[in-house]
């Protein structure tokens, strides 16, 4: 299946999610709707607790909505079971986490290739290109703990892009990095994502970062502002 730029990749319709908390139920998302075209990049902004991370998790198949639908490549992922959502996470969607979430006992080369291997479409040449573009070529035989935070996040980004996902989700990808490093990592990420033609949905609280993406969606109290 191939989606060209300009076709609708993602359609979120009237999405709701409520969490139980110590103070009673808390409606994180209240009827959010949005779309993302293939190859398009979108910044998801909002205050802490506005529901932007929850929206990201729901789209990434990490959690299930209470109501509404998420059409990704025409498939409603809100209706998928555990195995279906796992398959989605393996092959279609890639997530870049704030905490990198590398596998500490695997070397960098294996971490980069890991998700592609899980998805069953490992491409050594492509991994080498990603490592080169991310400036990791000298570190392939090291373990994550031997790398700096910026380097680790670059590994995570390479890992996400290795299986060529249709949609990249990023949750404050540079939130754990200092300013200089964050800018470099963000440049590399945006460039590579654009090259692969994947759609990008990035949660950030930085107006500057948000400005570098094609579109911006602001959430306030669980609704599109």
């Amino acid at each position: 299946m191939c989606y060209f730029n300009g076709m609708t990749l993602l359609t979120v319709d009237n999405l709701s999610k409520t969490y139980a908390t110590a103070d009673g139920p808390f409606a994180v998302l209240r009827g959010v709707s949005m779309t993302l075209e293939a190859g398009e990049s979108l910044a998801l902004t909002g205050e802490s607790g506005s529901g932007k991370s929850t929206l990201l998790h729901l789209i990434g198949g990490l959690d299930r909505p209470d109501a509404g639908s998420i059409l990704l490549q025409g498939q409603d992922i809100a209706r998928l079971d555990d195995a279906g959502r796992a398959a989605l996470r393996r092959g279609t969607v890639g997530v870049v986490f704030q905490q990198f979430n590398l596998i500490p006992s695997l070397k960098i080369a294996d971490n980069i290739a890991f998700q592609a291997r899980l998805a069953g479409r490992h491409d050594a040449d492509w991994c080498a290109v990603l490592a080169d573009r991310m400036g990791l070529t000298d570190h392939l035989r090291k373990y994550p703990e031997q790398l700096s935070g910026g380097q680790q996040q670059r590994v995570a980004i390479a890992r996400t892009l290795a299986p060529r996902p249709a949609l990249v989700l990023a949750d404050e990808p540079t939130g754990n990095l200092d300013e200089g490093t964050a800018a470099t990592v963000m440049d590399m990420m945006l460039e590579l994502v654009a090259e692969t033609g994947a759609g990008l949905l990035m949660v950030t609280h930085s107006q500057a970062l948000a400005g570098r993406l094609q579109r911006r969606l602001h959430l306030r109290a669980g609704q599109v502002a």
Partner: peptide
């Protein structure tokens, strides 16, 4: 992490 990356 393994689960987030799609291992059921």
């Amino acid at each position: 992490t393994l689960r987030a990356l799609g291992v059921p």
